[in-house]
């Protein structure tokens, strides 16, 4: 690990533009040990007052420093945002969830093997240096939203659930506070895969806002290489309501398949007003998977996503 200066922020303004932010540290310290991150100055924000989960306009305002454990086990989240609680509980391990924070989880970096290996070229680490993943081992990689410059996936489970829940991100900067819908927070790699979000240098995430809970059933289904403590190959966050035998409303987001927590509103439109049949699910899956492209080692994700999608919709609409 490269040497760095350590400082502790006393308030939010003291954390802005002050250096590399550290909170839970579970991803940053890992990347610093690998030499992927080499900050000269690390600013510890763990003592800031950003650890509360508050009722907010019928929904919740989640402080950026709320740990993944505290968020997953909050009574309101368990009762009204089951998809979020389940997504959090499916991620990482008990130890890591105790350390990892809400803001840090949103900003965690890809687990692409080549991004983590500083001996490999990587357009995300060094724009223009190339991509070793293309033509390499691609089991974890994207089938949607990738570019010729980067095929990495976003690894978060939490952010997938938040994407389905229409969450927004509250951001503090030198010019004040702004709120960005999560749907607009992550940017696709294009020819600049090093730019992952609309967060500007020096800005700090202070909270995530959840709107009032949607009606219907919720679940988070995660498919992975082992039963626990592994990143998603494919995941589906779903909130679906059924009325008089037809799907009233569906909110769906997908993990493990794209450079950002993936959502496609056309999929949801194709489900609304239809009977919950296999034909309906397949027609919506066709829209979801239009343009999906495998890289060889991840070709299996295309049928796997279709099947997981159908299974989740079947579960959420059965007997409803």
């Amino acid at each position: 690990m490269k040497p760095f200066d350590y400082a502790r922020a006393q308030d939010v303004s003291g954390a802005l533009d002050a250096g590399k932010i550290i909170a839970g540290g579970t991803n940053l310290l890992d990347l610093m040990k690998l030499g992927v991150e080499t900050p000269e100055r690390v600013v510890d924000i763990t003592r800031l007052d950003l650890k509360r989960i508050e009722d907010h306009e019928g929904g919740l305002r989640i402080g950026a420093l709320v740990s993944n454990s505290d968020l997953a086990v909050d009574d309101r989240v368990r009762r009204n945002y089951e998809v979020l609680s389940r997504a959090l509980l499916s991620g990482a391990s008990g130890q890591l969830r105790n350390m990892a924070t809400t803001g840090g989880n949103l900003l965690q970096r890809t687990r692409c093997y080549y991004f983590q290996d500083v001996a490999s070229p990587c357009n995300k680490r060094e724009p223009g240096s190339g991509c070793r993943a293309k033509g390499g081992a691609t089991r974890l990689h994207a089938i949607l939203g990738a570019s010729e410059h980067c095929i990495a996936t976003h690894p978060s489970d939490m952010a997938v659930a938040m994407q389905a829940l229409d969450a927004s991100v509250e951001i503090e900067g030198a010019e004040g506070t702004r709120t960005v819908p999560l749907a607009e927070f992550y940017v696709l790699p294009g020819d600049r895969p090093d730019i992952e979000t609309v967060l500007k240098p020096g800005e700090l995430i202070t909270a995530v806002i959840l709107p009032a809970p949607l009606p219907g059933r919720q679940t988070y289904r995660k498919v992975r290489d082992r039963a626990s403590y592994a990143f998603a190959l494919v995941s589906v966050a779903g909130i679906v309501s059924v009325k008089d035998g037809v799907i009233e409303q569906a909110a769906l987001a997908f993990g493990g398949v794209a450079p950002r927590p993936w959502r496609n509103l056309e999929v949801e439109t194709a489900l609304a007003g239809r009977e919950p049949t296999r034909e309906t699910f397949d027609a919506a899956a066709d829209i979801l998977l239009a343009g999906a492209e495998g890289q060889g080692g991840n070709d299996f994700k295309i049928p796997l996503l279709r099947r997981t999608f159908r299974a989740v919709l079947g579960e959420l609409t059965q007997g409803a």
Binding site: Y6, G25, D30, K33, Q95, N98
Partner: peptide, 27 residues
Amino acid sequence: CDHGQCGSCTVIADGRRINSCLTLACM
């Protein structure tokens, strides 16, 4: 592993289990 993947460094901090390898002592 020293990367938070194996759990052999687990300690308890203010009652909660954490990976001590992914924690800076100065924090």
